[in-house]
Amino acid sequence: MISKEEVKHIAKLARLELKEGELEKMQKELSAILDYFDLLKKANTSKLKRQPSFAKATEGQARKDEIAAKNHSLAEKIMNAFPDRKDDYIKVKAIL
């Protein structure tokens, strides 16, 4: 069983606030899910012909490093979605 402290630590890493009741519920559910993953321990991956390589699927597909045409109206729409804005900048709370 994953400890309450561990869940708290992961939640902090994930920048996720959990309320008190929520924390206990997640602790229980996460433990059940992680226990289920133990099944994978018996899978025999030693005979695997190819090591995982997701990059292979996209080989040779990278675009050229070129300057794309500007789209001012799109930029404006994206800026309109900022929760807080000063001119063309995102405004955020104090960092420290």
């Binding site: 561990e6 992961i10 994930a14 997640m26 996460l30 992680l34």
Partner: peptide, 13 residues
């Protein structure tokens, strides 16, 4: 989403 974010963060930690 919370559950999956937590499981994923754990699996990658």
């Amino acid at each position: 989403p919370k559950r999956r974010i937590l499981v994923g963060t754990y699996a990658l930690s």
